[in-house]
Design a protein around this nucleic acid. Structure first.
Lengths: 200, 200
DNA sequence: GTCTATACCCTGATAGAC
DNA sequence: GTCTATCAGGGTATAGAC
């Protein structure tokens, strides 16, 4: 296990992740990124041909970080697969609370900010969403016997993602976590009613 | 009933509505708006002090148009209040299909694009969401006897909005209406399971 | 690979005649 | 109220020495 000091590329991507999440892609200037990364223009353009290539690298970093950076902490100590769904939503609640309801899902925000994304960018956005809902689908399949046999577990996982994104958007716009909580409560009720049908 | 040719202000707001929806706020330049509205810089700045004031006007136009421009056509010929919820979602489906899944809710897109909105802007965004979910809540209250007495109909209306926004985001990112349809199907199931509890 | 300096363009906004 | 011309600033990206 060797620890090396992060090279310029790593620092640039890390800075861009933070800034794109905080201000969005269009409102983040290259100068902002250079400043935060402590790097000069020449180094950045040596590694990335242009700003969009940096965006692609950021989206790949998010995608690859979903497991270790998002799911692992959210699921620490939570074994029940269905509870893991709501533990993940609970993580977003924490992020909302910690930010006074200014938090926005970085991927969701980029997905709506970029109206005509390059195919490469759109593909990376989709990969992020797919990784998220696939992880939830895996949970649901582990608990498949609690749902009616004909339940579309992939669709249910996608639904959880939709509700999360919609709930974060609403909580953020109204600066009110209660909106998020009410959305999650509806989702919980939906899950319960599905599982009810196979209760012993 | 008098019809007057639209003045500059009207043309400017109309042009800005279209462009903000198509490209977003940040990616729309004043020059874009002037070009589409057929107006010169002097006229625009005579009416609006700055770009953000124009954004506020656009958000107010959307808010005031929700009834006549969105709900009225969606609900034409649909009398059942619960079906009206899904008729409205059906309208978004049409917009997705007509745009090859490039459609995005203009308000949702702005809500996520603008990371640190001025309080006035945030308030107008919230008013738009509130007008949407209030209209749905009214439908649900008209049909309140089909739901268990303790059902939080306002929360259910907010939930419909969250699902719509999440479903449009996903359908758009994956360029696939089927994602939208699966989300709506889950919502329908949720409604059905709630109404089941009070079936005769 | 990294530095500084800068080219070149487009942005929002203004000035002042009409 | 509307026109044209323009300002000042910041944007991405590049050039070329080191």
């Amino acid at each position: 296990m060797t620890v090396v000091p992060p090279g310029p590329r790593t620092r640039i991507v890390a800075a861009a992740m933070e800034l794109f999440a905080d201000k969005g892609f269009g409102s983040t200037s290259i100068a902002d990124i250079l400043g935060r990364a402590g790097v000069n223009s020449g180094s950045l353009y040596h590694v990335f041909p242009g700003k969009q290539d940096l965006l692609v690298a950021v989206l790949e970093a998010y995608r690859d970080g979903i497991g270790p950076m998002l799911l692992a902490p959210a699921w620490n100590g939570v074994d029940d697969p269905v509870e893991r769904v709501f533990a993940l939503l609970g993580r977003y609640r924490e992020l909302l609370v910690a930010s006074d309801c200014r938090y926005g899902c970085p991927i969701g925000s980029l997905a709506l900010e970029l109206h005509e994304p390059d195919p490469v960018v759109r593909e990376r956005l989709a990969e992020n969403f797919a990784a998220w809902s696939d992880a939830i689908r895996n949970c649901l399949e582990t608990a498949h016997d609690r749902f009616p046999a004909d339940t579309d577990l992939a669709a249910l996982a996608e639904f959880a993602l939709m509700v999360m994104e919609g709930a974060v958007m609403q909580a953020r716009t109204f600066r009110d976590v209660a909106r998020f909580d009410r959305g999650v409560a509806q989702l919980r009720r939906h899950f319960d009613s599905l599982m009810q049908e196979t209760a012993p």
